[in-house]
Write a protein that binds this DNA or RNA. Structure first.
Lengths: 231, 231
DNA sequence: AAAAGTGTCGAACGAACGTTCGGTAACCTG
DNA sequence: CAGGTTACCGAACGTTCGTTCGACACTTTT
Protein backbone atom coordinates (compact mmCIF):
# COMPACT_ATOMS: atom_id res chain seq x y z
CA UNK A 1 0.00 0.00 0.00
CA UNK A 2 3.07 2.25 0.06
CA UNK A 3 3.05 4.92 -2.61
CA UNK A 4 6.08 5.29 -4.81
CA UNK A 5 7.04 8.92 -5.01
CA UNK A 6 8.56 10.36 -8.16
CA UNK A 7 12.34 10.37 -8.24
CA UNK A 8 12.87 13.91 -9.34
CA UNK A 9 10.37 16.69 -9.90
CA UNK A 10 10.27 18.18 -13.38
CA UNK A 11 10.99 21.66 -12.18
CA UNK A 12 14.05 23.82 -12.25
CA UNK A 13 13.90 24.90 -8.61
CA UNK A 14 14.46 21.43 -7.29
CA UNK A 15 14.05 21.14 -3.55
CA UNK A 16 14.59 24.76 -2.80
CA UNK A 17 10.98 25.45 -2.00
CA UNK A 18 8.68 23.39 0.10
CA UNK A 19 5.79 23.51 -2.34
CA UNK A 20 7.65 21.75 -5.04
CA UNK A 21 9.25 18.96 -3.08
CA UNK A 22 8.42 16.91 -0.06
CA UNK A 23 5.01 15.74 0.97
CA UNK A 24 1.84 17.37 -0.22
CA UNK A 25 0.77 18.58 3.18
CA UNK A 26 4.11 20.04 4.14
CA UNK A 27 4.09 23.62 5.37
CA UNK A 28 4.54 25.95 2.43
CA UNK A 29 5.73 28.92 4.38
CA UNK A 30 8.13 30.94 2.27
CA UNK A 31 6.60 33.93 0.51
CA UNK A 32 7.66 32.36 -2.75
CA UNK A 33 5.60 29.28 -2.00
CA UNK A 34 2.58 31.23 -0.89
CA UNK A 35 2.62 33.26 -4.09
CA UNK A 36 3.11 30.15 -6.18
CA UNK A 37 0.20 28.45 -4.43
CA UNK A 38 -1.99 31.43 -5.28
CA UNK A 39 -0.88 31.27 -8.88
CA UNK A 40 -1.76 27.60 -9.04
CA UNK A 41 -5.14 28.39 -7.60
CA UNK A 42 -5.84 31.02 -10.25
CA UNK A 43 -4.46 28.73 -12.92
CA UNK A 44 -6.73 25.89 -11.84
CA UNK A 45 -9.67 28.25 -12.10
CA UNK A 46 -8.74 29.30 -15.61
CA UNK A 47 -7.84 25.83 -16.86
CA UNK A 48 -11.13 24.64 -15.45
CA UNK A 49 -13.08 27.31 -17.27
CA UNK A 50 -11.38 27.35 -20.65
CA UNK A 51 -9.44 24.11 -20.75
CA UNK A 52 -5.67 23.87 -20.75
CA UNK A 53 -5.21 24.62 -24.43
CA UNK A 54 -7.84 27.32 -24.43
CA UNK A 55 -6.35 29.17 -21.49
CA UNK A 56 -3.52 31.62 -22.03
CA UNK A 57 -0.72 32.84 -19.85
CA UNK A 58 -2.16 36.30 -20.41
CA UNK A 59 -5.41 35.16 -18.83
CA UNK A 60 -3.46 34.03 -15.81
CA UNK A 61 -1.42 37.21 -15.62
CA UNK A 62 -4.66 39.19 -15.63
CA UNK A 63 -6.27 37.04 -12.96
CA UNK A 64 -3.20 37.11 -10.76
CA UNK A 65 -2.59 40.84 -11.18
CA UNK A 66 0.94 40.15 -12.29
CA UNK A 67 2.75 40.91 -15.50
CA UNK A 68 3.07 38.21 -18.10
CA UNK A 69 6.83 38.04 -17.70
CA UNK A 70 6.51 37.97 -13.94
CA UNK A 71 4.79 34.61 -14.03
CA UNK A 72 7.94 32.98 -15.32
CA UNK A 73 9.67 33.77 -12.09
CA UNK A 74 7.43 31.18 -10.44
CA UNK A 75 6.90 28.63 -13.16
CA UNK A 76 9.02 27.25 -15.94
CA UNK A 77 6.25 27.04 -18.47
CA UNK A 78 2.54 26.69 -18.97
CA UNK A 79 2.98 22.93 -18.89
CA UNK A 80 4.65 23.29 -15.51
CA UNK A 81 1.50 24.92 -14.15
CA UNK A 82 -0.65 21.98 -15.13
CA UNK A 83 1.90 19.57 -13.78
CA UNK A 84 2.09 21.26 -10.39
CA UNK A 85 -1.69 21.49 -10.09
CA UNK A 86 -2.14 17.84 -10.88
CA UNK A 87 0.69 16.62 -8.71
CA UNK A 88 -0.49 18.56 -5.70
CA UNK A 89 -4.08 17.37 -6.04
CA UNK A 90 -3.15 13.73 -6.48
CA UNK A 91 -0.65 13.69 -3.64
CA UNK A 92 -3.03 15.35 -1.23
CA UNK A 93 -5.82 12.93 -2.05
CA UNK A 94 -3.60 9.90 -1.61
CA UNK A 95 -2.04 11.25 1.55
CA UNK A 96 -5.40 11.90 3.17
CA UNK A 97 -6.69 8.54 2.07
CA UNK A 98 -3.82 6.71 3.70
CA UNK A 99 -4.37 8.67 6.85
CA UNK A 100 -8.05 7.72 6.94
CA UNK A 101 -7.37 4.13 6.04
CA UNK A 102 -4.97 3.65 8.95
CA UNK A 103 -6.60 1.42 11.49
CA UNK A 104 -9.84 1.10 9.54
CA UNK A 105 -11.01 -2.46 9.43
CA UNK A 106 -13.49 -4.35 7.33
CA UNK A 107 -13.22 -4.39 3.56
CA UNK A 108 -16.61 -2.84 2.99
CA UNK A 109 -15.95 -0.04 5.38
CA UNK A 110 -12.58 0.62 3.77
CA UNK A 111 -14.17 0.92 0.36
CA UNK A 112 -16.63 3.39 1.82
CA UNK A 113 -13.73 5.38 3.19
CA UNK A 114 -12.12 5.43 -0.23
CA UNK A 115 -15.25 6.82 -1.82
CA UNK A 116 -15.84 9.36 0.90
CA UNK A 117 -12.26 10.57 0.79
CA UNK A 118 -12.41 10.97 -2.97
CA UNK A 119 -15.64 12.88 -2.89
CA UNK A 120 -14.62 15.05 0.05
CA UNK A 121 -11.58 16.30 -1.76
CA UNK A 122 -13.32 16.32 -5.11
CA UNK A 123 -16.15 18.59 -4.07
CA UNK A 124 -13.96 20.83 -1.92
CA UNK A 125 -11.56 21.35 -4.82
CA UNK A 126 -13.80 21.06 -7.81
CA UNK A 127 -11.73 23.21 -10.11
CA UNK A 128 -8.44 21.45 -9.52
CA UNK A 129 -10.20 18.11 -9.75
CA UNK A 130 -11.81 18.96 -13.04
CA UNK A 131 -8.38 19.89 -14.34
CA UNK A 132 -6.98 16.64 -13.00
CA UNK A 133 -9.75 14.63 -14.59
CA UNK A 134 -10.28 16.51 -17.81
CA UNK A 135 -6.66 17.13 -18.77
CA UNK A 136 -5.35 13.74 -17.88
CA UNK A 137 -3.78 13.09 -21.27
CA UNK A 138 -2.48 16.60 -21.80
CA UNK A 139 0.94 16.36 -20.19
CA UNK A 140 3.63 14.76 -22.30
CA UNK A 141 6.99 13.15 -21.69
CA UNK A 142 8.50 13.32 -18.24
CA UNK A 143 5.86 15.31 -16.45
CA UNK A 144 3.13 13.22 -18.03
CA UNK A 145 4.82 9.98 -17.07
CA UNK A 146 5.16 11.11 -13.48
CA UNK A 147 1.51 12.05 -13.15
CA UNK A 148 0.41 8.85 -14.84
CA UNK A 149 2.51 6.89 -12.37
CA UNK A 150 0.76 8.55 -9.43
CA UNK A 151 -2.56 7.86 -11.09
CA UNK A 152 -1.69 4.19 -11.47
CA UNK A 153 -0.82 4.06 -7.78
CA UNK A 154 -4.18 5.50 -6.89
CA UNK A 155 -5.93 3.04 -9.17
CA UNK A 156 -3.97 0.23 -7.53
CA UNK A 157 -5.05 1.25 -4.05
CA UNK A 158 -8.67 1.08 -5.11
CA UNK A 159 -8.18 -2.22 -6.88
CA UNK A 160 -6.57 -3.73 -3.79
CA UNK A 161 -9.45 -2.54 -1.63
CA UNK A 162 -11.95 -4.16 -3.94
CA UNK A 163 -10.08 -7.44 -4.08
CA UNK A 164 -9.88 -7.37 -0.31
CA UNK A 165 -13.65 -7.04 -0.36
CA UNK A 166 -14.07 -9.83 -2.86
CA UNK A 167 -12.00 -12.22 -0.80
CA UNK A 168 -13.59 -11.31 2.50
CA UNK A 169 -17.09 -11.88 1.13
CA UNK A 170 -16.20 -14.72 -1.21
CA UNK A 171 -17.57 -12.91 -4.23
CA UNK A 172 -16.84 -13.16 -7.92
CA UNK A 173 -16.44 -10.05 -10.05
CA UNK A 174 -13.89 -8.43 -12.28
CA UNK A 175 -11.77 -6.08 -10.22
CA UNK A 176 -10.81 -4.00 -13.22
CA UNK A 177 -14.40 -3.50 -14.28
CA UNK A 178 -15.48 -2.65 -10.77
CA UNK A 179 -12.71 -0.10 -10.22
CA UNK A 180 -13.35 1.58 -13.54
CA UNK A 181 -17.09 1.57 -13.05
CA UNK A 182 -16.60 3.15 -9.65
CA UNK A 183 -14.15 5.73 -10.95
CA UNK A 184 -16.62 6.55 -13.68
CA UNK A 185 -19.35 7.25 -11.18
CA UNK A 186 -17.27 9.40 -8.89
CA UNK A 187 -15.19 11.25 -11.46
CA UNK A 188 -18.15 12.07 -13.63
CA UNK A 189 -19.56 14.19 -10.87
CA UNK A 190 -17.68 17.29 -11.97
CA UNK A 191 -19.87 17.40 -15.07
CA UNK A 192 -23.10 17.80 -13.16
CA UNK A 193 -22.74 18.55 -9.48
CA UNK A 194 -24.48 21.71 -8.41
CA UNK A 195 -23.93 22.54 -4.74
CA UNK A 196 -27.25 24.37 -4.59
CA UNK A 197 -29.42 21.42 -5.55
CA UNK A 198 -27.27 18.33 -5.05
CA UNK A 199 -26.22 16.47 -1.92
CA UNK A 200 -23.02 17.44 -0.16
CA UNK A 201 -19.88 15.32 -0.24
CA UNK A 202 -20.71 13.12 2.73
CA UNK A 203 -24.25 12.35 1.66
CA UNK A 204 -23.23 11.82 -1.93
CA UNK A 205 -20.48 9.47 -0.83
CA UNK A 206 -23.04 7.48 1.14
CA UNK A 207 -25.43 7.20 -1.78
CA UNK A 208 -22.72 6.33 -4.27
CA UNK A 209 -21.30 3.77 -1.88
CA UNK A 210 -24.67 2.13 -1.47
CA UNK A 211 -25.31 2.06 -5.18
CA UNK A 212 -21.91 0.65 -5.94
CA UNK A 213 -21.63 -1.78 -3.06
CA UNK A 214 -25.06 -3.24 -3.57
CA UNK A 215 -24.15 -3.76 -7.20
CA UNK A 216 -20.96 -5.52 -6.29
CA UNK A 217 -22.08 -7.40 -3.20
CA UNK A 218 -25.34 -8.88 -4.37
CA UNK A 219 -24.60 -12.09 -6.18
CA UNK A 220 -28.11 -12.25 -7.60
CA UNK A 221 -28.27 -12.19 -11.37
CA UNK A 222 -31.43 -10.25 -12.10
CA UNK A 223 -33.18 -11.41 -15.26
CA UNK A 224 -30.34 -12.94 -17.17
CA UNK A 225 -32.01 -12.67 -20.55
CA UNK A 226 -30.11 -10.69 -23.16
CA UNK A 227 -31.28 -7.24 -24.02
CA UNK A 228 -31.32 -8.20 -27.67
CA UNK A 229 -33.91 -10.91 -27.06
CA UNK A 230 -36.66 -8.37 -26.74
CA UNK A 231 -35.56 -5.76 -29.24
CA UNK B 1 -40.70 9.93 -25.45
CA UNK B 2 -40.72 11.93 -28.67
CA UNK B 3 -37.50 13.82 -29.37
CA UNK B 4 -37.69 17.48 -30.12
CA UNK B 5 -35.52 18.23 -33.11
CA UNK B 6 -33.74 21.55 -33.42
CA UNK B 7 -35.64 24.18 -35.34
CA UNK B 8 -32.87 25.31 -37.62
CA UNK B 9 -29.36 23.98 -38.05
CA UNK B 10 -26.55 26.43 -37.44
CA UNK B 11 -25.06 26.01 -40.86
CA UNK B 12 -25.05 28.10 -43.95
CA UNK B 13 -26.00 25.37 -46.39
CA UNK B 14 -29.41 24.82 -44.87
CA UNK B 15 -31.26 21.87 -46.26
CA UNK B 16 -29.35 21.68 -49.47
CA UNK B 17 -27.44 18.59 -48.49
CA UNK B 18 -28.75 15.51 -46.81
CA UNK B 19 -26.00 15.29 -44.24
CA UNK B 20 -26.82 18.55 -42.64
CA UNK B 21 -30.57 18.31 -42.42
CA UNK B 22 -33.09 15.56 -41.96
CA UNK B 23 -32.68 12.49 -39.88
CA UNK B 24 -29.32 11.13 -38.87
CA UNK B 25 -29.69 7.90 -40.77
CA UNK B 26 -30.82 9.50 -44.03
CA UNK B 27 -28.91 8.56 -47.13
CA UNK B 28 -26.00 10.94 -47.59
CA UNK B 29 -25.48 10.29 -51.24
CA UNK B 30 -24.27 13.43 -52.93
CA UNK B 31 -20.51 13.65 -53.45
CA UNK B 32 -20.51 16.75 -51.32
CA UNK B 33 -22.03 14.85 -48.44
CA UNK B 34 -19.67 11.94 -48.78
CA UNK B 35 -16.68 14.24 -48.74
CA UNK B 36 -18.07 16.14 -45.78
CA UNK B 37 -18.64 12.90 -43.91
CA UNK B 38 -15.01 11.96 -44.51
CA UNK B 39 -13.89 15.35 -43.27
CA UNK B 40 -15.94 14.90 -40.11
CA UNK B 41 -14.38 11.52 -39.62
CA UNK B 42 -10.86 12.93 -39.88
CA UNK B 43 -11.83 15.84 -37.68
CA UNK B 44 -13.19 13.52 -35.00
CA UNK B 45 -9.93 11.65 -35.07
CA UNK B 46 -7.89 14.82 -34.63
CA UNK B 47 -10.16 16.39 -32.01
CA UNK B 48 -10.03 13.10 -30.15
CA UNK B 49 -6.24 13.03 -30.20
CA UNK B 50 -5.39 16.66 -29.48
CA UNK B 51 -8.60 18.09 -28.12
CA UNK B 52 -10.69 20.72 -29.87
CA UNK B 53 -8.55 23.69 -28.89
CA UNK B 54 -5.31 21.85 -29.46
CA UNK B 55 -6.26 20.71 -32.94
CA UNK B 56 -5.72 23.05 -35.87
CA UNK B 57 -7.40 23.40 -39.22
CA UNK B 58 -3.97 22.76 -40.69
CA UNK B 59 -3.89 19.37 -38.97
CA UNK B 60 -7.18 18.55 -40.60
CA UNK B 61 -6.10 19.79 -44.01
CA UNK B 62 -3.04 17.54 -43.77
CA UNK B 63 -5.06 14.52 -42.68
CA UNK B 64 -7.68 15.04 -45.35
CA UNK B 65 -5.17 15.74 -48.10
CA UNK B 66 -6.90 18.99 -48.88
CA UNK B 67 -5.71 22.55 -48.81
CA UNK B 68 -6.46 24.69 -45.80
CA UNK B 69 -8.71 26.98 -47.80
CA UNK B 70 -10.46 24.04 -49.39
CA UNK B 71 -11.88 22.96 -46.05
CA UNK B 72 -13.99 26.07 -45.90
CA UNK B 73 -15.89 24.90 -48.90
CA UNK B 74 -17.41 22.21 -46.70
CA UNK B 75 -17.58 23.84 -43.30
CA UNK B 76 -18.25 27.34 -42.08
CA UNK B 77 -15.71 27.27 -39.30
CA UNK B 78 -13.82 25.08 -36.91
CA UNK B 79 -16.71 25.34 -34.50
CA UNK B 80 -19.01 24.07 -37.21
CA UNK B 81 -16.93 20.89 -37.42
CA UNK B 82 -17.39 20.15 -33.75
CA UNK B 83 -21.06 20.96 -33.98
CA UNK B 84 -21.67 18.63 -36.90
CA UNK B 85 -19.74 15.79 -35.27
CA UNK B 86 -21.67 16.10 -32.05
CA UNK B 87 -25.05 16.50 -33.65
CA UNK B 88 -24.60 13.50 -35.88
CA UNK B 89 -23.42 11.27 -33.04
CA UNK B 90 -26.23 12.28 -30.69
CA UNK B 91 -28.95 11.95 -33.28
CA UNK B 92 -27.80 8.57 -34.40
CA UNK B 93 -27.64 7.27 -30.86
CA UNK B 94 -31.11 8.50 -30.03
CA UNK B 95 -32.57 7.29 -33.29
CA UNK B 96 -31.21 3.79 -32.81
CA UNK B 97 -32.34 3.74 -29.22
CA UNK B 98 -35.91 4.58 -30.13
CA UNK B 99 -35.84 1.89 -32.77
CA UNK B 100 -34.67 -0.70 -30.26
CA UNK B 101 -37.06 0.44 -27.60
CA UNK B 102 -40.07 0.03 -29.86
CA UNK B 103 -42.07 -2.91 -28.63
CA UNK B 104 -39.64 -3.73 -25.82
CA UNK B 105 -41.47 -4.43 -22.61
CA UNK B 106 -40.48 -4.57 -18.98
CA UNK B 107 -38.74 -1.68 -17.31
CA UNK B 108 -35.64 -3.63 -16.42
CA UNK B 109 -35.24 -4.94 -19.92
CA UNK B 110 -35.70 -1.46 -21.34
CA UNK B 111 -32.96 -0.11 -19.13
CA UNK B 112 -30.69 -2.89 -20.36
CA UNK B 113 -31.49 -1.90 -23.90
CA UNK B 114 -30.58 1.68 -23.14
CA UNK B 115 -27.20 0.64 -21.79
CA UNK B 116 -26.49 -1.76 -24.60
CA UNK B 117 -27.42 0.78 -27.24
CA UNK B 118 -25.20 3.39 -25.66
CA UNK B 119 -22.23 1.05 -25.45
CA UNK B 120 -22.73 -0.38 -28.91
CA UNK B 121 -22.51 3.02 -30.50
CA UNK B 122 -19.91 4.24 -28.05
CA UNK B 123 -17.41 1.49 -28.73
CA UNK B 124 -18.06 1.41 -32.46
CA UNK B 125 -17.46 5.18 -32.68
CA UNK B 126 -15.00 5.78 -29.90
CA UNK B 127 -13.40 8.85 -31.39
CA UNK B 128 -16.60 10.72 -32.09
CA UNK B 129 -17.92 9.72 -28.67
CA UNK B 130 -14.84 10.96 -26.91
CA UNK B 131 -15.30 14.26 -28.70
CA UNK B 132 -18.96 14.30 -27.73
CA UNK B 133 -18.14 13.57 -24.12
CA UNK B 134 -14.95 15.49 -23.66
CA UNK B 135 -15.86 18.68 -25.49
CA UNK B 136 -19.35 19.01 -24.13
CA UNK B 137 -18.89 22.54 -22.86
CA UNK B 138 -16.85 23.79 -25.79
CA UNK B 139 -19.59 24.98 -28.12
CA UNK B 140 -21.03 28.37 -27.35
CA UNK B 141 -24.19 30.27 -28.22
CA UNK B 142 -26.57 28.81 -30.75
CA UNK B 143 -24.72 25.67 -31.68
CA UNK B 144 -23.99 24.95 -28.03
CA UNK B 145 -27.59 25.48 -27.03
CA UNK B 146 -28.79 23.11 -29.71
CA UNK B 147 -26.42 20.33 -28.68
CA UNK B 148 -27.24 20.83 -25.01
CA UNK B 149 -30.92 20.53 -25.86
CA UNK B 150 -30.35 17.18 -27.56
CA UNK B 151 -28.31 16.08 -24.58
CA UNK B 152 -31.12 17.01 -22.21
CA UNK B 153 -33.50 14.97 -24.31
CA UNK B 154 -31.23 11.97 -24.06
CA UNK B 155 -30.90 12.43 -20.31
CA UNK B 156 -34.67 12.65 -20.07
CA UNK B 157 -35.17 9.39 -21.90
CA UNK B 158 -32.89 7.65 -19.43
CA UNK B 159 -34.55 9.30 -16.47
CA UNK B 160 -37.97 8.20 -17.68
CA UNK B 161 -36.77 4.65 -18.10
CA UNK B 162 -35.44 4.60 -14.55
CA UNK B 163 -38.60 6.03 -13.08
CA UNK B 164 -40.57 3.46 -15.02
CA UNK B 165 -38.38 0.87 -13.32
CA UNK B 166 -38.84 2.43 -9.92
CA UNK B 167 -42.61 2.40 -10.22
CA UNK B 168 -42.80 -1.08 -11.64
CA UNK B 169 -40.73 -2.50 -8.80
CA UNK B 170 -41.97 -0.16 -6.11
CA UNK B 171 -38.48 1.03 -5.26
CA UNK B 172 -37.15 4.19 -3.71
CA UNK B 173 -34.14 5.97 -5.13
CA UNK B 174 -33.17 9.33 -6.55
CA UNK B 175 -33.68 9.28 -10.28
CA UNK B 176 -31.21 12.07 -10.83
CA UNK B 177 -28.47 10.34 -8.89
CA UNK B 178 -29.14 7.05 -10.61
CA UNK B 179 -29.06 8.55 -14.11
CA UNK B 180 -25.89 10.47 -13.43
CA UNK B 181 -24.22 7.53 -11.76
CA UNK B 182 -25.10 5.38 -14.74
CA UNK B 183 -23.91 8.00 -17.23
CA UNK B 184 -20.69 8.25 -15.28
CA UNK B 185 -20.07 4.54 -15.57
CA UNK B 186 -20.80 4.30 -19.26
CA UNK B 187 -19.29 7.58 -20.44
CA UNK B 188 -16.10 7.08 -18.49
CA UNK B 189 -15.31 4.07 -20.63
CA UNK B 190 -13.55 6.14 -23.26
CA UNK B 191 -10.79 6.86 -20.77
CA UNK B 192 -9.83 3.23 -20.33
CA UNK B 193 -11.37 0.82 -22.79
CA UNK B 194 -8.80 -1.21 -24.68
CA UNK B 195 -10.35 -3.46 -27.30
CA UNK B 196 -7.45 -5.91 -27.03
CA UNK B 197 -7.92 -6.69 -23.35
CA UNK B 198 -11.43 -5.52 -22.45
CA UNK B 199 -14.82 -7.02 -23.13
CA UNK B 200 -16.68 -6.08 -26.29
CA UNK B 201 -19.73 -3.84 -26.31
CA UNK B 202 -22.33 -6.53 -25.73
CA UNK B 203 -20.50 -8.19 -22.85
CA UNK B 204 -19.58 -4.89 -21.30
CA UNK B 205 -23.19 -3.75 -21.51
CA UNK B 206 -24.24 -6.91 -19.72
CA UNK B 207 -21.74 -6.46 -16.92
CA UNK B 208 -22.48 -2.78 -16.49
CA UNK B 209 -26.18 -3.47 -16.50
CA UNK B 210 -25.80 -6.11 -13.81
CA UNK B 211 -23.65 -3.86 -11.68
CA UNK B 212 -25.97 -0.93 -12.02
CA UNK B 213 -29.27 -2.77 -11.77
CA UNK B 214 -28.26 -4.79 -8.74
CA UNK B 215 -27.23 -1.52 -7.11
CA UNK B 216 -30.57 0.06 -7.88
CA UNK B 217 -32.85 -2.92 -7.43
CA UNK B 218 -31.63 -4.31 -4.14
CA UNK B 219 -33.29 -2.43 -1.35
CA UNK B 220 -30.89 -3.85 1.23
CA UNK B 221 -28.84 -1.22 3.04
CA UNK B 222 -25.52 -2.92 3.60
CA UNK B 223 -23.80 -1.80 6.81
CA UNK B 224 -25.40 1.57 7.35
CA UNK B 225 -22.65 2.84 9.62
CA UNK B 226 -20.89 5.99 8.42
CA UNK B 227 -17.50 5.71 6.87
CA UNK B 228 -16.24 8.29 9.32
CA UNK B 229 -17.07 6.10 12.31
CA UNK B 230 -14.06 3.93 11.70
CA UNK B 231 -11.56 6.44 10.38
C1' DA C 1 29.66 50.24 0.54
C1' DA C 2 29.98 46.91 -2.94
C1' DA C 3 28.20 42.64 -4.67
C1' DA C 4 24.87 39.19 -5.26
C1' DG C 5 20.26 37.62 -5.36
C1' DT C 6 15.15 38.22 -5.65
C1' DG C 7 10.83 40.01 -7.56
C1' DT C 8 8.83 42.44 -11.14
C1' DC C 9 8.09 44.70 -15.50
C1' DG C 10 7.45 46.62 -20.67
C1' DA C 11 8.56 45.30 -24.93
C1' DA C 12 9.44 42.36 -28.19
C1' DC C 13 10.28 37.74 -30.83
C1' DG C 14 9.02 34.10 -33.93
C1' DA C 15 5.63 30.87 -34.54
C1' DA C 16 1.07 29.30 -35.06
C1' DC C 17 -3.66 30.21 -35.32
C1' DG C 18 -8.64 30.73 -37.87
C1' DT C 19 -10.18 32.80 -41.63
C1' DT C 20 -10.50 35.33 -46.19
C1' DC C 21 -9.41 36.74 -50.87
C1' DG C 22 -8.71 36.26 -55.67
C1' DG C 23 -7.98 33.12 -58.88
C1' DT C 24 -8.14 28.70 -61.77
C1' DA C 25 -9.62 24.79 -63.60
C1' DA C 26 -13.48 21.42 -64.32
C1' DC C 27 -18.18 20.58 -64.79
C1' DC C 28 -23.11 21.23 -65.72
C1' DT C 29 -26.88 23.69 -68.07
C1' DG C 30 -29.13 26.17 -71.63
C1' DC D 1 -20.37 27.12 -77.07
C1' DA D 2 -21.37 30.71 -73.55
C1' DG D 3 -22.27 31.38 -68.56
C1' DG D 4 -22.74 30.04 -64.19
C1' DT D 5 -21.88 27.02 -60.51
C1' DT D 6 -18.85 23.79 -57.93
C1' DA D 7 -14.46 22.25 -56.12
C1' DC D 8 -10.32 23.58 -54.90
C1' DC D 9 -5.92 26.19 -54.11
C1' DG D 10 -1.65 29.58 -52.85
C1' DA D 11 -0.93 33.39 -50.47
C1' DA D 12 -1.81 36.40 -47.33
C1' DC D 13 -4.16 39.03 -43.23
C1' DG D 14 -4.63 40.21 -38.60
C1' DT D 15 -4.46 38.22 -34.17
C1' DT D 16 -2.93 35.64 -30.40
C1' DC D 17 0.14 32.51 -28.50
C1' DG D 18 4.28 30.91 -25.15
C1' DT D 19 8.42 32.54 -24.10
C1' DT D 20 12.62 35.57 -23.61
C1' DC D 21 15.37 39.75 -22.95
C1' DG D 22 17.22 43.57 -20.64
C1' DA D 23 16.32 46.59 -17.24
C1' DC D 24 15.01 48.53 -12.66
C1' DA D 25 14.20 48.57 -7.68
C1' DC D 26 14.63 46.29 -3.40
C1' DT D 27 16.75 43.21 0.03
C1' DT D 28 20.33 40.35 1.78
C1' DT D 29 25.02 39.01 2.13
C1' DT D 30 29.86 40.05 2.23
Amino acid sequence: MEIRLPIVPYNGRKGRHAFQSGKAGEETDSPFDRRLAKLLHYAAHIFCEKGYEGASMRDLSRAAGMSLAGLYHYVDSKEDLLYLIQKHAFRTIIERLQERLKGAHGAENRVRIFIENHLDYFLANKEAMKVLTHEDETLKNGRGAEIRAIKRDYYKICLDLLEELRQEKGLEFSGRLAVLGLFGMINWIYTWHNPRIDLDAGELAGEMSNLFLRGVLNPGKPKRKSAKANA
